[in-house]
Design a protein around this nucleic acid. Structure first.
Lengths: 208, 208
DNA sequence: GTCTATAGGACGATAGAC
DNA sequence: GTCTATCGTCCTATAGAC
């Protein structure tokens, strides 16, 4: 009479897929409202789950944030690897560290900006979190401090031949990229991110 | 037996002073947690009031935010006027608009950065809100869109003689200032905001 | 793996006394 | 101008059934 007891042959969504979905939904919501403004209820609704359903996968709200950041880092590393040229095997494992031999700084930046121009939601996620996480008690504070240091030092490693103060040039480049992205996010219609970057890169790289 | 009925000869704080206090406390709290993370309870505690006490002065949480922004604009206009030189009467009424005759862009920026270097809390307030307010439904969204446009166009007005694309140079300068400030806020100990600005200004202004 | 139920607060805002 | 009291809503998190 009743439905069979073992009605559920398999999970409605495989666990990895569900995590994937939660990360995507959360990234979009944090980009819109920041982490302080994020609610687990909204995440759950966006996934067709209840709040405890979400918490089952990520443990806590803080856990959700760091899961999203790690997820994004993996995605970005993957997409940058392919962006620097399919089949090119000398490409660094990660954007933010190690082995950048054979890649010059200017084209690395250009590739990065080109990719970012096509994913405004992701750029906004990081822009909002970078500002919010200035607070020492923000759950992503250490993450962004470390990220900033890694990016600058890997840029500096590539800037060695261009100037006698590579880490300074690196910091200026990162500052410029961040600032341009902020302007672009505020007025996407009237701002061409890649064009602006290339314009400013010309004056920044040509004479040192 | 009881305390006299008309115990309160005058308000414990004059209304203008109380507003002033609320603005200062709120500015500090928003810099720490953003607007979405701000709670009226914290504002009230910081002022020695209750929540309805705060709401009496500002009406609503949104009203509090715009009151703070207007308050800060007034303060900034005042401090910049004095920063550009006491007794100098040709100085523009506001940083962000009109009559900039007699002031050159580079020194205007340098004065601004010098002042900002001495008020990290204020810089952080605007940095956090600028990112948060990218969301179209954020109560300060229009304010920051307008502010950005005003600053860029007033910079562009001063950049006319330096380049054939003044509004582009202006946007790049603003981007650079924003980005440098973000880095400085993240690592105030190891970053000299004014020095970094001057270093980059040299390469940005010298050849066009 | 997902649910219901619920604990236990914090939130913004209003009404009305003083 | 500031309070107490209160409303209704939202929040994160846990316990336990299925």
């Amino acid at each position: 009479m009743n439905a069979p007891v073992h009605r559920r042959d398999r999970p409605r969504l495989r666990s990895a897929e569900r995590r994937h979905q939660i990360m995507e939904v959360t990234a979009r919501l944090i980009a819109e409202r920041g982490f302080w403004g994020l609610s687990l209820q909204d995440v759950a609704d966006g996934c067709g789950l209840t709040v405890p359903g979400v918490l089952h996968h990520v443990g806590s709200k803080d856990g959700l944030l760091i899961a999203v950041l790690e997820y994004r880092d993996r995605e970005d590393a993957r997409s940058l690897r392919s962006g620097l040229g399919v089949g090119r095997e000398q490409v660094p494992d990660e954007w933010s560290q190690g082995g950048p031999e054979g890649v010059d700084l200017r084209s690395l930046c250009t590739v990065t900006m080109r990719r970012n121009a096509q994913q405004p939601e992701i750029v906004r996620l990081f822009t909002v979190l970078a500002a919010e996480s200035l607070a020492p008690n923000h759950p992503a504070h250490d993450y962004f401090a470390g990220r900033q240091a890694r990016v600058v030092s890997s840029f500096a490693a590539l800037a060695g031949e261009l100037t006698d103060r590579p880490e300074r040039l690196a910091a200026h480049i990162v500052a410029l990229m961040d600032g341009l992205q902020l302007q672009w996010l505020r007025a996407p219609e009237s701002t061409d991110l890649v064009r602006e970057w290339e314009a400013v890169a010309a004056t920044l790289f040509d004479r040192r």
